[in-house]
């Protein structure tokens, strides 16, 4: 937005392009590089060309294989993400309201945040067996700690005057958290949600590849894994492309919109 106002106020330059156009040009450039390198390599077992990948993507979309895999993955992802957000909300609310809660959060995040979710897979398998529950468990782990940390940092950064103004008009306990702390910390919370989403996605794909082999309802990771073992490299790339496209869509549709409607409008953007 600021860019467009800048370019209209400045004298019109002959080759000014907006940020969208710039991104599109870069994407097309990357696709061209990919295509030409793959053609030069001439080995579609190692690296299928961009067009071959698109064809494989289209095939798998049409025969219902990919949509089914995406549905399975997204179902597990959203479940884990939702539970992770809920737990993060509870633990940061505790931390905001009491010193014990704050120490608990500090200690737990210090202990578990550096622990890779994949390292918990063996434990998850022991506890929940092979299946969706184990995947949800590791996703919750990968979302919970970074999100709780971001929320807590956001709460702590709320200016003391604003806190006092909130308590002055009678906000206490839950109404203080919901009516003051959460909106005031929203920039940090949003970036925590973004981070959590990316972590959850990565963890899911990786986890599916590790033990998707015996899961009947495999997701995208399973799709990539199976196609690699069958040397269907174009399908592998189609799977990877799907992961990227979903990530881009969520980023630009969900998070960018949330950002524009809230922190940007309120002048709170960090």
């Amino acid at each position: 937005m600021s860019e467009s106002t800048l370019s209209t106020s400045a004298r019109p330059a002959p080759f000014t392009v907006g940020p969208r156009a710039r991104r599109l040009v870069i994407l097309v450039g990357l696709a061209l590089i990919w295509e030409s390198y793959a053609r030069w390599l001439g080995n579609s077992l190692l690296l299928p060309s961009f067009l071959e990948t698109l064809v494989a993507l289209w095939e798998n979309l049409r025969n219902g294989e990919l949509p089914e895999r995406v549905r399975a993955s997204l179902g597990i992802l959203l479940t884990g993400y939702g539970i992770g957000i809920g737990l993060a909300a509870i633990i940061t609310a505790l931390a905001a309201l009491s010193r014990w809660g704050e120490s608990l959060l500090g200690l737990l995040t210090a202990m578990f945040n550096p622990l890779p979710a994949i390292a918990l897979l063996p434990v998850a398998l022991l506890w929940f067996g092979v299946g969706a529950s184990s995947l949800v468990f590791v996703i919750v782990h990968s979302v919970l700690w970074p999100l709780a940390l971001a929320c807590h940092a956001g709460f702590r950064a709320v200016p003391p005057t604003l806190r006092m103004a909130g308590r002055n008009i009678g906000l206490t306990g839950p109404s203080y958290v919901v009516g003051l702390l959460i909106p005031a910390a929203l920039p940090s919370i949003l970036s925590g949600l973004r981070l959590g989403w990316a972590f959850a996605w990565r963890t899911l794909i990786a986890a599916e590849m590790v033990f998707g082999a015996s899961a009947r309802e495999g997701g995208l990771g399973w799709f990539i894994f199976v196609n690699r073992s069958q040397l269907e490299t174009a399908n592998v790339f189609a799977g990877l492309l799907t992961v990227i496209l979903i990530g881009l869509a969520v980023e630009s549709l969900v998070f960018a919109t949330l950002n524009r409607l809230t922190v940007q409008r309120w002048g709170q953007e960090a």
Binding site: P159, T161, L162, G166, P183, A184, W266
Partner: peptide, 10 residues
Amino acid sequence: FQEFDQLLPW
């Protein structure tokens, strides 16, 4: 208060 950030920005 003296400080300008006493209003809820949202």
